[in-house]
Design a protein around this nucleic acid. Sequence first.
RNA 1: CGGGGUAUAGCGCAGUUGGUAGCGUUCCUGGUUUGGGACCAGGCGGUCGUGUGUUCGAGUCACACUGCCCCGACCA
Length: 493
Amino acid sequence: MATEIKGLTKRSVNYSQWYNELVVKAELAEQADVRGCMVIRPYGYAIWEKIQSELDKQFKATGVQNAYFPLLIPKSFLSREAEHVEGFAKECAVVTHYRLKTNETHDGVVVDPNAKLEEELIIRPTSETIIWNTYKNWIKSYRDLPILCNQWCNVMRWEMRTRLFLRTSEFLWQEGHTAHATREEAEDRAKMMLKVYADFAEKYMAVPVIQGVKSETERFAGALDTYTIEAMMQDGKALQSGTSHFLGQNFGKAFDVTFLNKENKPEYAWATSWGVSTRLMGALIMTHSDDNGLVLPPRLAPLQVVIVPIWKTDEQLNAINNKVAEIKANLEAMGISVKYDNDDQKRPGFKFADYELKGVPVRIVIGARDMENGTAEIMRRDTLEKQTVTLEGIEYTVKNLLDDIQENIYKRALDYRNQHIYECDNYDEFKEKIKDGGFFLCHWDGTAETEAKIKEETQATIRCVPYMFEQTPGTDMVSGKPSKYRVLIARAY
RNA sequence: CGGGGUAUAGCGCAGUUGGUAGCGUUCCUGGUUUGGGACCAGGCGGUCGUGUGUUCGAGUCACACUGCCCCGACCA
């Protein structure tokens, strides 16, 4: 069955080990060093580029434009918004000097003590502060609003512990920052962008997500509301895959961004911010991959089809080359990316294993035997099923297969997730079951105390108040107090 | 920053009571192969993490330091 995922269905799988073996071999990344900085090799970066370009189209469809703001932020900016500094100050890298000099023994360099900065600079952990400092100059009147900017950049957060793709110190992301004249418009924008993320996750990444709103303790530092998409990995743990924040007037007030409304009265601007990061690549890997390597959704695969010839003589190879050139042209005309690998230095078996590791969705094999019969062997990466098809019209077979794979891996992930969502009203039962992972829908009295107790006793956290389920009042399973709705609880990465 | 591991060839590892370093793999050369990660032969490659000490002699013993991995606190 499609849901069979070798090895990874066992809870014993250690994702770190799996990453080191699989991801490194798959040439996605070379290392996660002590600072958790990552090397993304060309193949891995190609996946990120696909994510970027597809998401960028979605943003632009909602009127968002790209811009760029500085990497370094004056330290004082961070202290303008009290909650924001509280949330990020602990994990900031700080620039204190601007020059090095050769040391006394002339065999190295030291920081030049004379080059100390008057005011230290922070390497951006996120750009709300520097962007809102800029928006102050851009916004004078309600006619200047809304401002809908996004930037693709790197950020740095000095995490205590890092994990490849899920929590590296430096990571690539996009951060959107919008300014609005009204509360409603800003709230709508925050929710709109969450929907963009959710649609992207499900339609492009084939990763089913649960949309919801964060509890107060899990909220972004400085936000009034944080909306989130939560995905389930193959071990039943949750991965927060994207967030969208309604920031109210907090940053407008902190950076004194006012505009004159239609009544000629000054008002503070309303804000949102929203982002997704290279963590999405972690989600992609951890949702679909199996023991043979990556399984990439066709819509994001840098390479959708690989064609491998099998031959003995030069005449045979020439004949195959000619035939493949034709097939390749037809496929490319349909917008499908194709690689023909007739490298004679590598044996077919090696190529098969290698492209499987890289997650190429469809493999076509053409040998001398097929040339006689007018056929080809075609394999789909998601199920590893092979079939022999006629060369006549093969491009349509491939097109359909790509669509089918995209749909199938989504459905497979969705089925897996749905089978691991439980409604639970008994705390003892919850404590026992959460050990095996999964998402739990439980009543919550809304207090931080209950939340803290659950976290301490089970390591699980409230991921969100989900939108997508019908809600009825009930009783908190921990405190026994009344509850308005169920929340999603899970262990998370 | 706490707790536990570990450090020997590019990678993965072995190395006995202390006697001067080896296996697998990668890589290179030649040949045979090619429908699921080929085989044979030959070859390149190591201040044994760093420092100090014990000893006639240290990869091995002692002490110190450093790096890395795992677990926890922090987090998208």
